[in-house]
C-alpha cells in the first residue's frame, strides 16, 4: 500500500515537472533546475547525516570534485560527449570516495566530522593553487556540449532542454536514493546508526557498510556537482569550499533530516530564499543564519516535521513515516 502510494507521488511529481516549462518563465525555470540539482546534493548528504548519523563537513569535496572534473574534461577533451563528461565526474568521485572512505571508516562522531573537514580543506587548497588545471580564483568556463542520443542530437544551449535532462537524470538519481534506503544495504545503515555493537555481534562488517555508503553518497554528490557545472556553465573554487558544505547542511536542517524528502524541501526553500533575499539585501547570509539557528533551536525536525504535524492535525491520523525517525520505517 505504502509503496504504491509513493510510486504514485513520484510519477505525479515527474509529470508536474514535465509541464513546468509550459507554465514557468525562463527565470523561474532556471531556478527550478538549480533546485533539482541541489535537492540531489542535499539528499545525498542526508543519507549520511539523517540515515547513518554521520555528520560530515566535507561533502563539498565530492560535489566540487565532480564539478571540476566535468569542467576539466569538457575543456581538455575536444568533442567529448555530454554523457562521458558526467561519467568522468562521477567515476572520479567514486574513486575519491572509496580512498577517503577507507581512511575514515574507523572514525565516528567528532573525529569523523573533523577529518572530513580536513579533507575538504585539502581539496580546496589543491583547487586554489593548481591554477593551470582548475583556473584558481578565475574558475573555469565551459559550454554545454550537445546531447547525442545516437540517432539524433539535442542542443543543450536551450535552458528548457537542459531542464528536461536535469529532471530526468537528476530526478532518477533522487528516486534511486530513495530506493537505496529500502534495500538491505539501506536498512543496514539505519540499524548501524541505532546499534552498531549489536550489528557487529550479528556478524555484519559495519566498516564495509560505512565505506560503501560513504562512496555511494560521494558519487551521488559528484553527479550533482557535475550537473551544477553544466547548469552554470561555470565552476569556481566556491563549489569545493566549506561554504558549499554549509549550504547543504542548511538545506538538510531546514528541510528536516528525519525524512527522506525533507532535504528536497530544504533545497527548494534555500534556493528560493537565497534568490529573494540576495535581491533585497547584501546581508542575506545573516538572515539565513538566523533561520538556521531558530530552526535548530525550535523546530529540530525541520519543515518536514511542521508539515507532518499539520497533516496529523487536519486528518487526525498518524503517518508511520512522519515526524519520527526514518529508522522507525519498516524496521
Amino acid at each position: 500500500m505504502k509503496q504504491k502510494n509513493t510510486s504514485f507521488i513520484i510519477i505525479a511529481l515527474f509529470l508536474a515537472g514535465a509541464f513546468m516549462p509550459l507554465i514557468l518563465k525562463q527565470y523561474h525555470l532556471n531556478m527550478l533546475t538549480e533546485i533539482i540539482i541541489f535537492a540531489l546534493f542535499a539528499v545525498s548528504y542526508n543519507l549520511l547525516l539523517g540515515y547513518a548519523g554521520l555528520l560530515s563537513f566535507g561533502h563539498a569535496m565530492f560535489f566540487g570534485l565532480g564539478a571540476f572534473m566535468t569542467a576539466v574534461a569538457i575543456i581538455h577533451i575536444p568533442g567529448l560527449a555530454l554523457w562521458n563528461a558526467i561519467l568522468i565526474g562521477v567515476v572520479t568521485t567514486i574513486i575519491a570516495g572509496f580512498v577517503i572512505g577507507s581512511l575514515l571508516l574507523r572514525h565516528k562522531g567528532a573525529y569523523f566530522a573533523l577529518l572530513t573537514l580536513a579533507f575538504n580543506a585539502l581539496f580546496y587548497a589543491v583547487a586554489t593553487k593548481w591554477h593551470s588545471v582548475t583556473g584558481g580564483d578565475d574558475g573555469l568556463s565551459i559550454t554545454r556540449p550537445d546531447l547525442s542520443l545516437g540517432f539524433t542530437s539535442i542542443s543543450m544551449a536551450s535552458l528548457t532542454h537542459f531542464y528536461y535532462l536535469t529532471l530526468i537524470i537528476v530526478g532518477a538519481a533522487i528516486v534511486f536514493c530513495w530506493y537505496f534506503t529500502h534495500t538491505a544495504m539501506g536498512k543496514t545503515v539505519l540499524l548501524m546508526r541505532e546499534n552498531e555493537e549489536r550489528m557487529k555481534f550479528l556478524g555484519y562488517n559495519t566498516n564495509i557498510s560505512r565505506l560503501l555508503l560513504f562512496t555511494f553518497t560521494g558519487a551521488v554528490a559528484g553527479l550533482a556537482g557535475s550537473f551544477y557545472t553544466l547548469h552554470f556553465q561555470f565552476v569556481s573554487i566556491s563549489a569545493i569550499s566549506v561554504d558549499m558544505t554549509t549550504a547543504v547542511l542548511l538545506m538538510a536542517f531546514v528541510g528536516g533530516t528525519k525524512t527522506f524528502w525533507g532535504p528536497i524541501l530544504g533545497a527548494f526553500v534555500y534556493i528560493i530564499l537565497q534568490n529573494y533575499l540576495s535581491n533585497i539585501t547584501d546581508r542575506w547570509p545573516l538572515f539565513m543564519g538566523f533561520i538556521f539557528v531558530s530552526m535548530v533551536l525550535f523546530i529540530p525536525g525541520g519543515l518536514s516535521e511542521v508539515i507532518m504535524n499539520i497533516r496529523q492535525r487536519l486528518f487526525g491520523k498518524k503517518d508511520n513515516n512522519g515526524g519520527k525517525s526514518a529508522a522507525s520505517e519498516e524496521v
Binding site: 526553500v269 528560493i272 530564499l273 529573494y276 533575499l277 535581491n279 533585497i280 538572515f287 533561520i291 531558530s294 530552526m295 533551536l297 525550535f298 523546530i299 519543515l303 511542521v306
Partner: peptide
C-alpha cells in the same frame, strides 16, 4: 510559539515585494 514565528518570518520574507 517561536517555531511558528520562525516559519511565519520565512513566509513573510518570501512574500516581500522584490524591488
Amino acid at each position: 510559539f517561536f517555531g511558528g514565528l520562525c516559519i511565519l518570518s520565512m513566509v513573510l520574507m518570501l512574500a516581500l515585494p522584490v524591488g
